[in-house]
Design a protein around this nucleic acid. Sequence first.
DNA 1: GTGGTCTAGACCACT
DNA 2: GTGGTCTAGACCACC
Lengths: 128, 128, 128, 128
Amino acid sequence: MEPTAELLPQHFQINPALPIYEQFVEAIRGRIVSGAIPLGMRLPSVRELAAARGVNPTTAARTYQELERTGLIVTYRGQGTFVTGDEAILAEARKAIAVKAVRDFTSAAASLGLTAEQMLNMYKEDSV
Amino acid sequence: MEPTAELLPQHFQINPALPIYEQFVEAIRGRIVSGAIPLGMRLPSVRELAAARGVNPTTAARTYQELERTGLIVTYRGQGTFVTGDEAILAEARKAIAVKAVRDFTSAAASLGLTAEQMLNMYKEDSV
Amino acid sequence: MEPTAELLPQHFQINPALPIYEQFVEAIRGRIVSGAIPLGMRLPSVRELAAARGVNPTTAARTYQELERTGLIVTYRGQGTFVTGDEAILAEARKAIAVKAVRDFTSAAASLGLTAEQMLNMYKEDSV
Amino acid sequence: MEPTAELLPQHFQINPALPIYEQFVEAIRGRIVSGAIPLGMRLPSVRELAAARGVNPTTAARTYQELERTGLIVTYRGQGTFVTGDEAILAEARKAIAVKAVRDFTSAAASLGLTAEQMLNMYKEDSV
DNA sequence: GTGGTCTAGACCACT
DNA sequence: GTGGTCTAGACCACC
């Protein structure tokens, strides 16, 4: 059997106040769009992910289902789950993340009567 | 009786998928820190807010309760609820908003392998 | 509490060979797009649907979640689930159903070397 | 050894979300009933099909098994697998495809409050 | 009251 | 082996 990607950083901490599957989705999406997990790579099985992180297999399955809805990962029946090989989908996901982040940031700045650049310059040093 | 502030823009749209009280808190906080509602201004009562927006009175009450926790608004028993008169609290709230926004933005950029400045410059034009 | 729509015909039979939630989704979608359930109508609660049809509440919840993904129904937190009030979404769903049906039908006809009209005329009487 | 039929178009794309054997069965049945593969023609062996399409041999075997159930193909032990030479079986398969297609199409139209003819006329142009 | 999430454990189809 | 579905029952946030 093919080796699988290291899905999440070893130190990944689950925040019990938020849905586990959402935290997994965001973290895995981040690792895919940043290139930490290469296109086409096989992911650990639902059962492996569940065991590795101490969650229920249905929670792991839901994580993969959400990522599959966006096209970032693909399930091959009976064979496992893989990162998409389609660069266009990756580019689309990257763009969606960037646009949302810029929009949120700009509107937060606007509520303070600032432009995004002003807020970024004023508070950059505090955001470590 | 003193007039009260227009708490939310008339066109304010509630997103049914998110907690209503959270949407109210964020919107009202934005209007206070941006100066749209002046320091010391009296706010509508819980019942008035609930009736005006067609929400459950407990939802309006929770909105004020959250804003009170941060000190941005203050309740004087028997007199009503008012925006704080304390500029320091306002400054603190502004800073908290800015720091959180910069932190979120920077970490989103990092997940794409970019700095905050790079991402802001690339997508500024899309963020209408 | 508001009355709720009769979601499924009384004689609705579950086919154990197919996913229950899919059968529910298709049947409910059909009743919405056909106008059998009016726009804005409240639907039975997850627990009511589950009890009425003898399925697990999580199966009923998944049914609603799928319909919500397409926008045909909307969930108001703490209040219940409602048919969308947006006619555009309804029109979109109607169109999607029609386009898919015509496409499937045309390609089945093509595999027999027929046009859609030919096949429809030849076999209409047998399809009771 | 007799040559064998080109079972599937060269560009045939497998959809990983659906059972592979079902996609093969439908595609091969389509090529037989449309006459693209002539009656009595020899088919590639299970192993050849599996190798040519990069699927598990058990998947190829199940494909033939399903087609054999309907009588469209026949296996002669030691000699290989062949398209049936029986025109009656072919006619039966054609009729089954047509009847099912008309039934599905008519019921989709009914769910929109239309007759099959109405829906076909309205959306014919979209069904490229 | 409402829906949303999680766990536990079972069964199934597919490869 | 893989993921997909269903049940049973619990807990939670929200209104």
